Measured scan of single mutants.
Amino acid sequence: MAAGGDHGSPDSYRSPLASRYASPEMCFVFSDRYKFRTWRQLWLWLAEAEQTLGLPITDEQIQEMKSNLENIDFKMAAEEEKRLRHDVMAHVHTFGHCCPKAAGIIHLGATSCYVGDNTDLIILRNALDLLLPKLARVISRLADFAKERASLPTLGFTHFQPAQLTTVGKRCCLWIQDLCMDLQNLKRVRDDLRFRGVKGTTGTQASFLQLFEGDDHKVEQLDKMVTEKAGFKRAFIITGQTYTRKVDIEVLSVLASLGASVHKICTDIRLLANLKEMEEPFEKQQIGSSAMPYKRNPMRSERCCSLARHLMTLVMDPLQTASVQWFERTLDDSANRRICLAEAFLTADTILNTLQNISEGLVVYPKVIERRIRQELPFMATENIIMAMVKAGGSRQDCHEKIRVLSQQAASVVKQEGGDNDLIERIQVDAYFSPIHSQLDHLLDPSSFTGRASQQVQRFLEEEVYPLLKPYESVMKVKAELCL
């Protein structure tokens, strides 16, 4: 049975990233139509530049190519590739079939990587351009969430054990800070992308030097003109047959890092959902379990974690691919890159769409948070109580021993009897502590235990987050809708 299948058929496997999760716009960027249309555009740009620099290419040939950029006979191309065992030459023939007058000058002087690699770089750039505003929107939604809850005390956790208090907004800023680093890295790697350009079979530009009869300047002009037509500021000066596969490492490393950030955020949300302090959106008709109707599973956060793990592992592909590119190139890269580049971007696209949807509907339960604080705060307040007693004339050592005994009794009630923490009640009825009984409410005010959390939130948002989001103001209103 021949390899390949009808990918629109229910009898043929289709990647869930495309069929179930990723956005239509990201799927289109990695589609065959987008790819092969870009090949034709690159052939047109090459012909236009070659004509401008004096090669015998007519206006009629150029116009014929322009008129057929979208006229792609995919069936013919597939048949040609089956016959020739070469995808680029299959599309040269297919393009030439609908451009008979231009057929002889299509791909003039070029090698397969002229269309293959340059198209990949265009796709990487455009895919990054799709991700950047999506990530900015996630940051914006979380920034709104953090600002609104900047002063809401909550129990902090280290080692997932109760620690000092923080605020809900401050905790959210930990998430935002990681995503801001990801946004900066995505922008950097996007701006650092260079075009492969017009380089020939081993990167020496020998074929173009021959076409222009040894004119170095025209060869350099050709490279520059096509690079500018493709919208790049610069091209690699040095290439082998391909652009260095280190570029793929750079791009997928940034995406993998984004995956790590999203995994951490969504894990926190899942843990908070278990504590009943916070939940992701839950639709009115949504079913959490087929057997347990009360369940409210954090399905979206779980999906993000599941896909983020996949995204983090994909960076190993370009690392290994770059390491086995012998001399000017081997074909070890080809099949692998067809999979890992598309999957990385479709996965990143999915987790950003999902995280935006989550961040637009996060639900906080202040009463649950308050109750958990009441359970733990008495123990945390013991040092403040000791200091207040010393100020009232008591002995630190005597007070410490009193607190120690009462704390152990209260802990026994919590752990052995399943009761509430009654340390404060014990202190309130103990005559030894009568000098500070009137101060206990103040000493137990949760806001006095959150330090500068709310001020940190305000400063972080104003100095770091809002300036970073400013270039994306025009796209901030787009909502994230999930079908599944």
Results as ranks from 00 to 15, higher is better:
residue 2 A to V: 06
residue 5 G to F: 12
residue 5 G to N: 14
residue 6 D to N: 09
residue 6 D to Q: 03
residue 9 S to H: 15
residue 13 Y to P: 12
residue 13 Y to A: 13
residue 13 Y to K: 07
residue 13 Y to D: 05
residue 14 R to A: 12
residue 15 S to G: 15
residue 23 S to N: 08
residue 23 S to L: 05
residue 24 P to F: 14
residue 33 R to E: 12
residue 43 W to K: 00
residue 44 L to H: 09
residue 44 L to R: 07
residue 44 L to D: 04
residue 46 L to D: 01
residue 47 A to C: 05
residue 47 A to F: 03
residue 47 A to D: 01
residue 50 E to L: 10
residue 50 E to P: 00
residue 55 L to R: 10
residue 57 I to V: 09
residue 57 I to L: 06
residue 57 I to F: 07
residue 58 T to Y: 10
residue 59 D to K: 10
residue 60 E to F: 10
residue 65 M to R: 04
residue 71 N to C: 08
residue 72 I to R: 05
residue 75 K to L: 09
residue 78 A to T: 11
residue 82 K to T: 12
residue 84 L to A: 10
residue 84 L to H: 07
residue 85 R to I: 09
residue 86 H to L: 00
residue 88 V to S: 08
residue 91 H to M: 11
residue 92 V to E: 09
residue 92 V to A: 14
residue 92 V to S: 08
residue 92 V to G: 07
residue 93 H to D: 13
residue 98 C to D: 11
residue 99 C to Y: 04
residue 99 C to L: 14
residue 101 K to H: 09
residue 101 K to S: 11
residue 104 G to V: 13
residue 104 G to T: 15
residue 105 I to P: 03
residue 105 I to Q: 12
residue 107 H to A: 04
residue 112 S to L: 00
residue 114 Y to W: 15
residue 119 T to R: 02
residue 121 L to D: 00
residue 122 I to S: 03
residue 122 I to N: 04
residue 126 N to F: 12
residue 129 D to V: 11
residue 132 L to C: 14
residue 133 P to L: 14
residue 133 P to S: 14
residue 140 S to I: 13
residue 142 L to M: 12
residue 143 A to T: 09
residue 144 D to C: 14
residue 148 E to R: 10
residue 149 R to T: 12
residue 155 L to G: 02
residue 155 L to A: 01
residue 156 G to Q: 04
residue 159 H to Y: 01
residue 160 F to M: 06
residue 160 F to L: 07
residue 161 Q to T: 02
residue 161 Q to C: 05
residue 166 T to R: 00
residue 166 T to V: 08
residue 169 G to P: 02
residue 169 G to W: 03
residue 170 K to G: 03
residue 171 R to D: 00
residue 172 C to T: 12
residue 173 C to W: 02
residue 174 L to C: 15
residue 175 W to M: 03
residue 178 D to L: 00
residue 180 C to D: 04
residue 183 L to F: 06
residue 184 Q to E: 15
residue 188 R to A: 06
residue 189 V to H: 06
residue 191 D to V: 08
residue 194 R to M: 07
residue 194 R to A: 14
residue 195 F to K: 01
residue 197 G to R: 02
residue 198 V to N: 15
residue 200 G to H: 01
residue 201 T to F: 02
residue 202 T to L: 06
residue 202 T to C: 09
residue 205 Q to R: 00
residue 206 A to V: 09
residue 207 S to Q: 01
residue 209 L to C: 07
residue 210 Q to G: 12
residue 211 L to W: 06
residue 222 L to Q: 01
residue 223 D to N: 10
residue 225 M to A: 10
residue 226 V to G: 01
residue 228 E to Y: 13
residue 229 K to Q: 08
residue 232 F to H: 03
residue 234 R to Q: 09
residue 243 Y to C: 14
residue 245 R to F: 00
residue 246 K to C: 03
residue 247 V to Y: 10
residue 248 D to Q: 01
residue 248 D to F: 00
residue 249 I to Q: 05
residue 255 L to M: 11
residue 256 A to S: 15
residue 259 G to C: 05
residue 261 S to E: 03
residue 262 V to A: 15
residue 263 H to Q: 04
residue 264 K to Y: 04
residue 265 I to L: 15
residue 273 A to D: 09
residue 278 M to G: 04
residue 285 Q to M: 14
residue 290 S to G: 03
residue 291 A to I: 03
residue 292 M to W: 01
residue 293 P to A: 14
residue 294 Y to E: 01
residue 296 R to K: 05
residue 298 P to W: 01
residue 302 E to W: 01
residue 305 C to W: 03
residue 306 S to C: 03
residue 306 S to W: 01
residue 311 L to A: 05
residue 312 M to W: 05
residue 312 M to N: 01
residue 314 L to E: 06
residue 316 M to N: 10
residue 317 D to T: 06
residue 317 D to H: 03
residue 321 T to R: 02
residue 322 A to D: 05
residue 324 V to G: 07
residue 325 Q to A: 11
residue 329 R to K: 04
residue 331 L to R: 01
residue 331 L to D: 01
residue 332 D to N: 00
residue 334 S to R: 03
residue 337 R to A: 02
residue 339 I to K: 08
residue 339 I to T: 14
residue 339 I to V: 13
residue 339 I to N: 10
residue 340 C to R: 02
residue 341 L to H: 13
residue 343 E to Q: 13
residue 344 A to S: 09
residue 345 F to C: 12
residue 352 L to E: 05
residue 354 T to L: 14
residue 355 L to S: 07
residue 356 Q to Y: 11
residue 358 I to L: 14
residue 358 I to G: 05
residue 359 S to T: 09
residue 363 V to E: 05
residue 364 V to L: 13
residue 364 V to G: 03
residue 368 V to Q: 05
residue 368 V to R: 11
residue 371 R to T: 05
residue 374 R to D: 06
residue 375 Q to M: 09
residue 376 E to V: 05
residue 378 P to R: 01
residue 381 A to S: 06
residue 382 T to H: 02
residue 394 G to F: 10
residue 395 S to M: 09
residue 395 S to Q: 13
residue 396 R to A: 05
residue 399 C to R: 02
residue 400 H to R: 02
residue 402 K to V: 06
residue 405 V to P: 11
residue 405 V to A: 14
residue 406 L to F: 14
residue 412 S to I: 13
residue 413 V to T: 13
residue 418 G to K: 01
residue 418 G to Y: 02
residue 420 D to Q: 05
residue 420 D to Y: 04
residue 421 N to L: 06
residue 421 N to T: 07
residue 423 L to D: 04
residue 425 E to Q: 10
residue 427 I to Q: 04
residue 429 V to A: 11
residue 430 D to Q: 11
residue 434 S to V: 09
residue 435 P to I: 08
residue 438 S to R: 07
residue 439 Q to I: 10
residue 442 H to N: 13
residue 443 L to Y: 05
residue 444 L to W: 09
residue 446 P to S: 06
residue 447 S to N: 14
residue 448 S to L: 15
residue 449 F to D: 04
residue 451 G to A: 06
residue 451 G to L: 04
residue 454 S to V: 11
residue 456 Q to F: 04
residue 459 R to T: 11
residue 462 E to C: 14
residue 472 Y to T: 13
residue 480 A to E: 15
residue 480 A to W: 15
residue 482 L to C: 15
residue 484 L to A: 15
